[in-house]
Structures are given as structure tokens and as C-alpha cells.
């Protein structure tokens, strides 16, 4: 059998990612909602948790055969259960990734980096948010760049994912002083500063969940 870093991300790894994402979100839901109550409408944790729970159920009921189908199925579950901007944006992330990877049984670092970059580009286009607007893009964009850099440098996948997760966490923390320019928090103007952005926080959890799920796989 291959070791835990055979450079591949299989359909099983992606399923493990979604399950880990659901577990982490369920554990952090109250904290996410508390963050959202400071600068939003106090529903981010419950909304995302509803979505990741729906993804888990869908994948458990009907496990997809390939990476593209898995990402699409997950994205559609998020769109129809999360509601609000987060549902459309996370849905777009997954649906664009699905388009990028197509019906493949597994991805390498470069394939994942391309897909993630396409997904984040979709989120940016859909939400018209740029880095610095205090949104999920502030965590996703650095993660996409770190992943691409790692892929170009020929780095092993587990290491690449850890770097992406670290970049997402840095981007998340950098949202604290920012004044929101997109999303519900933007109605608060200057009062949105000095708060961690809940969207960037859940996005960092998403990336960390992939790094954790893949690094814990027994090859």
C-alpha cells in the first residue's frame, strides 16, 4: 500500500474532508454564531452546521463515484440548506471545483490547486468581494495561493495542505482590524472593525479540515 503521502487525494479522502468539516463546524457552531452576532445576524454557525450536516447525510446515503460528482453533490447540498450568502458562496466554491476536476477518481497537488483556485475565483466573482473586504475570501485566497505555490514547487500533498491551512488561518486573523466592505457586516461600517470575520473563520476551518483529514489517512 502507498504511504500516507502518496501525493494523491482520493474520493475517500474528499469524503473524509467533508465529514471532518462537519465535525469541526458542529464543534465551532456556537463560536461562529457568537462572532456573527457581533457584526452580522447571528446565524452563521447554525446555518453552516445545517449545511455540513446535509452534506454528510447526502454523502453517506449516496457516495459519489468520482471527485467531480462528490464536490458537486456537496455544493448542491450547501446551496439548498445553508441559505443566505454563505450558501451561495460555499456552493459556488464547490461547484466551480467540481467543474475544474471533472469525473476523476483522484487528484494530485496540482489538480487540487487548480480546482481550489477556480473555486475561489468563482466565489470572488459571485460575491464581488476582494481580499481585504473582511469576508471568507480573506481566508480562501491566501490558501489558494499557498496551494498553488506548493504545487509549483512540487511539494508533497500533506505538506501543501498544511501550508494552505496555515495561510488560511493567517488570512482569517488578518480580518480582525478590517472594516467590512461586503456582506451584512458592511452595514456596520467602522463598527465592524476589531472583530474576527465569521465567514473567514468557517473558511479557515474548511481548509484545516482538508489538511487534517488527509494527514490522518492511513495509506
Amino acid at each position: 500500500m502507498a504511504g500516507s503521502d502518496d501525493g494523491r487525494l482520493t474520493v475517500d479522502d474528499l469524503v473524509a474532508w467533508m465529514f471532518r468539516f462537519d465535525e469541526r463546524i458542529a464543534a465551532e457552531a456556537d463560536r461562529l454564531t457568537a462572532l456573527d452576532s457581533a457584526i452580522g445576524d447571528a446565524d452563521h454557525g447554525t446555518n453552516i452546521a445545517r449545511g455540513t450536516g446535509a452534506v454528510r447525510k447526502r454523502l453517506a446515503d449516496a457516495p459519489p463515484d468520482d471527485a467531480g460528482a462528490l464536490l458537486k453533490s456537496s455544493g448542491m447540498a450547501l446551496v439548498s440548506t445553508v441559505g443566505g450568502a454563505s450558501g451561495s458562496l460555499y456552493g459556488t466554491l464547490f461547484l466551480e471545483m467540481a467543474k475544474s476536476v471533472g469525473p476523476t477518481p483522484e487528484l494530485d497537488t496540482a489538480g487540487l490547486a487548480d480546482a481550489f483556485r477556480a473555486g475561489v475565483a468563482g466565489v470572488v466573482a459571485r460575491g464581488r468581494a476582494e481580499p481585504g473586504d473582511k469576508t471568507m475570501v480573506d481566508a480562501l485566497q491566501p490558501a489558494a495561493e499557498a496551494l498553488s505555490a506548493a504545487a509549483e514547487g512540487g511539494r508533497p500533498i500533506v505538506e501543501s495542505l498544511r501550508e494552505a491551512a496555515a495561510a488560511a488561518a493567517l488570512g482569517r486573523d488578518a480580518t480582525i482590524p478590517l472594516v467590512a466592505r461586503k456582506g451584512r457586516a458592511s452595514y456596520l461600517g467602522e463598527r465592524s472593525a476589531d472583530h474576527l470575520d465569521p465567514g473567514a473563520t468557517s473558511a479557515a476551518i474548511l481548509v484545516q479540515a482538508l489538511a487534517d483529514a488527509r494527514s490522518e489517512r492511513i495509506g
Binding site: N47, R50, M76, V79, S80, T81, G83, G84, G87, S88
Partner: peptide, 13 residues
């Protein structure tokens, strides 16, 4: 209108 019986919007709807 609404999402999953709550305030929200659903692109599939």
C-alpha cells in the same frame, strides 16, 4: 423565498 423554512434564499428554488 426563504430557505429550509427560515429567512434566507435558496438558489435551487
Amino acid at each position: 423565498a426563504g430557505s429550509d423554512g427560515r429567512f434566507g434564499t435558496d438558489a435551487t428554488a
